[in-house]
Design a binder for these strands. Structure first.
Lengths: 240, 240
DNA sequence: ACAAAAGTGTTGCTGGTACACCCATGT
DNA sequence: ACATGGGTGTACCAGCAACACTTTTGT
């Protein structure tokens, strides 16, 4: 029977303890939208074998938390942001995915507004990278990023999570650009307006853009209450 | 440093071994379609605390396999079926989800044709249960089942995986009924035909149903080659 | 003959796409 | 005045939903 040097849990009986060791981690793909460009938050790898390469933000799972809690903790610790939108993507388990041992990791993706984030100070060697510029990452993190992006693309067409990438008040142009960035397509402006307005999910904030050197657009916000109503009956999503 | 009594892997260094023990398992939600009804394969729980209750088929992850391999192994061992359609659903990690200790499990769902399966012998205490009749299961397996069903519903509308629930040759009625069963809706027969035929994914087998006490229908099969072509350009899925 | 399901077309509606001009603001 | 993007409407087309009768087989 394996020997535990230090443990405050006593619920792991003999028959459940495998005769080998796994490590369990959580990796967060933090997507941020920054003035027209979709970015992802990366950290310089601290492992010698991946020196100089970038990797996702991750940490080991602790005994007193589940995976959802771990993902929130990681984001809180690293960025200071609470209540971020987070969703589990997939668990990656290749035998040799980590050079130092058998580490199984569960990937989460997060959506943040980069301006909100900038209010907190950027510590360590964290940097925002343009998603489309990323060619390689440490470990299997490039694959995790790719799969997370695919899940994100589906997700924003099914549920109104896209608003997490914007500030509370935004113009229709902002909204359209996020969709275009994430989906990698171009959309017709007039048809886009019609479709968005027809959902009834936008609340007119009776405000205008400021300090733009063109005609200012109206500002809107996501109408959560309307969405809660709509969800019960029918919300077909945003299909483009 | 934890002590491993028996191990053939030497890649787990000190800094990666948490000071506690997790167990990692895989649970398979095996969906089967049996003459008009969607079922799921369950086994009687062998744990005292869940005596008499049913649970999903699962096993601990082994050091020499990844999660995909483990799920295939479980299906192979328990049902004898190879090459089954399998897809990862989600990882469940509640602290108290297993009464005997900290067990994190990754759920997979599988799609089988019950008739194919019946060719192998049903060992142990395995039984097919009608999905809509299931109220409770051991552990958090009811939640896993519910979430797997939700994923399955999305999946069959995005990719032609539904054919895994049918025999190679099937009638249009069979196909329509599987969709209706899984989605929990009723579909118009004429519109269903039009939509399915318009995809070009069905191959006419030039055969008829046998031994039905009504006018026999034509038999079709899924045209994999056509799908491979279509996939490269555009396949919008089956939306109902 | 009867029961049971197969097979087959049309019409109206709805929602998507394509497309061009005037308007408000800052420089 | 000019540059930049905001704001608006229409016409066509495709795809979806609704809907009923005849045909084939087994009993």
């Amino acid at each position: 029977m394996p020997h535990r040097t230090k443990s405050n849990i006593n619920i792991t009986p003999v028959q459940l303890v495998p005769e080998f060791q796994f490590a369990l981690s959580v990796d967060c793909v933090i997507f941020g939208y920054d003035r027209g460009v979709l970015k992802v938050l990366l950290i310089e790898s601290d492992l010698p074998s991946y020196k100089g390469q970038w990797s996702l933000l991750g940490d080991l799972l602790r005994p007193d938390e589940n995976l959802d809690q771990a993902s929130h903790r990681i984001l809180q610790e690293r960025t200071g942001v609470n209540d971020m939108f987070l969703e589990q993507v997939k668990t990656f388990s290749s035998i040799d995915r980590h050079p130092a041992g058998r580490v199984i990791t569960t990937a989460y993706f997060a959506l943040v507004n980069v301006r909100d984030y900038q209010l907190k100070k950027l510590d360590h060697n964290l940097h925002w990278h343009v998603v489309t510029d990323i060619q390689t990452l440490a470990f299997d993190h490039k694959e995790i990023l790719d799969q997370s992006l695919r899940v994100l693309r589906k997700k924003i067409q099914e549920e109104p999570v896209i608003f997490n990438l914007l500030e509370k008040k935004f113009s229709l142009r902002d909204l359209q650009q996020v969709f275009e960035q994430v989906l990698g397509v171009e959309l017709d402006r007039r048809n886009f307006r019609k479709k968005i307005f027809s959902t009834g999910l936008l609340k007119d904030e009776d405000e205008m853009e400021k300090q733009v050197n063109h005609r200012p657009g109206k500002l809107y916000s996501f109408n959560q209450e309307t969405y809660e109503q709509l969800k019960k009956k029918s919300f077909a999503g945003f299909r483009f």
